[in-house]
């Protein structure tokens, strides 16, 4: 069996008293798309932030291409993580920069494109997410939510990353725009042959973008398997979540 592109073992993270991840194990094989599902606040974002190095886990192993990024020298860890493109939950576009500079940001930072060619390159990438040249000079705040998501997607894929993370790519969009974004994600991932992890609450979305699925519950992976079998799964936790039932093992904590 070949090495997984991403391999996670015993990943733990607490914030103060609050245990968020309590021994997560996960494998993502090269070229496959994994969808991670789970209730709000179960640590899905913390999980991918740990892989990106934005959160420092308390314990565990995170391997990319078989190398442990948590124990590798800082420089090597940066190199391994540089192959990840990330679409943040709310886009996280730089509002001080025009759309084209947002899209070309990573390419410019890695000196893979000269400044004078950056705009043309950005327009090329924008076209891949269905945006016209006319938006290139606009500020992100001038765009609708769906367009911002597209720009954020363009920024994430501009450097053709071998790994892509999508944090709730369709949350906050109408169902049609959600389907469009899912379609773009699938296109990009297929075209680049990338490995991907997508977080979602949306079962339709999970079916569209995932080959495999994993459900996070109580700080661990409660269930994992092929994405299509999510809908027929009999595990009570998974079934309650996928069918959106109030009754079941998952008790929603009463929030203040």
């Amino acid at each position: 069996m070949s090495t997984p592109k991403i391999r996670i073992r015993g990943l733990k993270k607490s914030f103060g008293e609050k245990i968020v991840l309590d021994g997560v194990d996960l494998d993502v094989m090269a070229g496959t798309g994994l969808v991670v599902i789970g209730g709000s606040g179960t640590g899905k974002s913390v999980l991918i932030r740990s892989i990106l190095g934005l959160v420092t886990p308390d314990a565990g192993v995170i391997e990319i291409d078989g190398e442990d990024v948590l124990r590798a020298p800082a420089r090597r860890a940066r190199e391994l993580r540089a192959q990840i493109g990330m679409l943040f939950q709310n886009g996280a576009l730089f509002d001080s920069l025009p759309v084209w500079e947002n899209v070309a940001f990573g390419l410019l930072a890695e000196r893979r494109v000269a400044r004078r060619d950056a705009r043309a390159k950005a327009i090329e990438v924008l076209a891949q997410v269905g945006l016209a040249e006319s938006v290139a000079g606009l500020s992100p705040s001038e765009l609708s939510g769906g367009m911002q998501k597209r720009v954020a997607l363009a920024r994430a894929i501009a450097s053709a990353p071998a790994i892509m993370f999508f944090d709730e790519p369709t949350t906050g969009l109408d169902p049609i725009m959600g389907a469009v974004i899912d379609g773009l994600i699938v296109d990009c991932v297929k075209r680049l042959g990338s490995t991907s992890i997508a977080i979602t609450h949306d079962m339709a979305s999970a079916q569209r973008i995932g080959d495999m699925a994993a459900m996070l519950y109580n700080g661990r992976v409660e269930w994992s398997g092929p994405a299509p079998s999510l809908l027929t799964e009999t595990n009570p936790v998974v079934a309650q979540f996928t069918h959106g039932r109030a009754e079941g093992p998952i008790k929603m904590a009463l929030r203040k």
Binding site: R49, A82, I84, F88, A92, S96, F105, E110
Partner: peptide, 20 residues
């Protein structure tokens, strides 16, 4: 205010995912 906004909207995290 500017850096704070960038922090809470994940723009600072986005910088580090873009090799910066």
């Amino acid at each position: 205010a500017e850096l704070g906004t960038m922090r809470v909207t994940d723009q600072i995290d986005a910088l580090s995912t873009l090799s910066t």
